[in-house]
């Protein structure tokens, strides 16, 4: 039986509440995953963190794009700032659920759910995202920034203890001139409503059109969202031509471990579409990066 549903107004208040309930309370965002999963829906007290002051918006801050924990997928999908500086996130969050879910579901909640193929998570990972973890200790608010990858322990298992800690915000460095991000995925129309495979990429090109920096995230390719570091390394210094795309796909296939998951996809299918998604994401990055240069020159 639920004893309380609390909606604090500040982060300080929220962390203090968690501390006060000593494990009997847990954090909830939009609740679109949480309330559906009856097995995990047992916390006596819920602390809703979608109304915290200063954490309901997307803004530029200290050279980062900052996304508060109350920000919904709908806000992200409609954000002009993100469209320009983190397109992959806009694409990923715009595809999740329908409007009713996007209007309440938060990116912080998506990360807290720790699924290895969560769209928003993959996009933020490729963007080089960080999360701010906040808690209450010795009577005061503590907070620190973690690299996003540190948030995941296993499928559905978060390193952030939601009975003690709050993912207060997310941030990443905006894409600049010659740089862009993209997200591509395949869904299955039957069975369970989860993506079969997703790829997010962030590429930076130098003046000659060579890849200067690359970040690629994919999933499900293991227990946690996967950063394709070998593929990233392979891409550095290369032009994004047909040969590079083909070879990059081979590198990616060499470094991921995809599985057959019942009622979702076979490993063979995942291996067949992974190169397609990589190609779609990378060529999108190139097209968009080109556009940033064109805008720049003008």
């Amino acid at each position: 039986m639920r004893e309380a549903y609390l909606i604090p107004e500040t982060l300080e208040e929220a962390t203090a509440l968690l501390a006060r309930y000593q494990g009997r309370a847990r954090v909830v965002g939009g609740g679109t995953d949480y309330f559906v999963d009856e097995a995990h829906n047992g916390a006596p007290v819920l602390i809703d963190v979608t109304r915290l002051r200063g954490l309901r918006e997307i803004r530029e801050e200290h050279g980062y794009v900052f996304i508060g924990c109350g920000v919904t997928h709908a806000q992200i999908a409609a954000s002009a700032l993100l469209q320009q500086s983190g397109t992959a996130l806009v694409e990923a969050c715009g595809q999740i659920g329908g409007p009713q879910v996007r209007n309440v579901a938060t990116l912080a909640g998506n990360i807290a759910h720790a699924l290895p193929a969560a769209d928003g998570t993959l996009a933020l990972l490729a963007l080089g995202g960080e999360i701010q973890v906040a808690w209450h200790a010795e009577g005061e608010l503590r907070a620190e920034w973690w690299p996003l990858a540190r948030a995941f322990k296993g499928p559905g298992q978060s390193a952030v203890d939601s009975t003690r800690q709050i993912i207060a915000a997310m941030r990443f460095k905006p894409t600049g001139a010659g740089e862009a991000s993209a997200f591509a995925r395949v869904m299955r129309p039957q069975g369970v409503a989860l993506p079969i495979m997703g790829v997010a990429a962030r590429l930076k090109f130098d003046a000659e059109g060579r890849i200067e920096a690359a970040a690629i995230a994919t999933g499900p390719a293991g227990p946690v969202p996967f950063r394709a570091v070998q593929t990233e390394a392979f891409l550095i210094g290369r032009m994004l031509d047909e040969a590079t795309l083909d070879e990059a796909a081979q590198v990616l296939l060499g470094e991921v471990h995809v599985r057959t998951s019942p009622h979702r996809a076979t490993a063979a299918y995942r291996r067949a579409v992974l190169p397609v998604l990589l190609r779609r994401a990378l060529t999108q990055c190139a097209t968009r990066a080109q556009r940033t240069l064109a805008i720049h020159e003008r």
């Binding site: 549903y5 609740g31 679109t32 309330f35 559906v36 819920l46 809703d48 709908a74 409007p99 009713q100 879910v101 209007n103 309440v104």
Partner: peptide, 9 residues
Amino acid sequence: VPVNSCIYP
């Protein structure tokens, strides 16, 4: 804003 009221606290 449209929401699914069945799981909206």
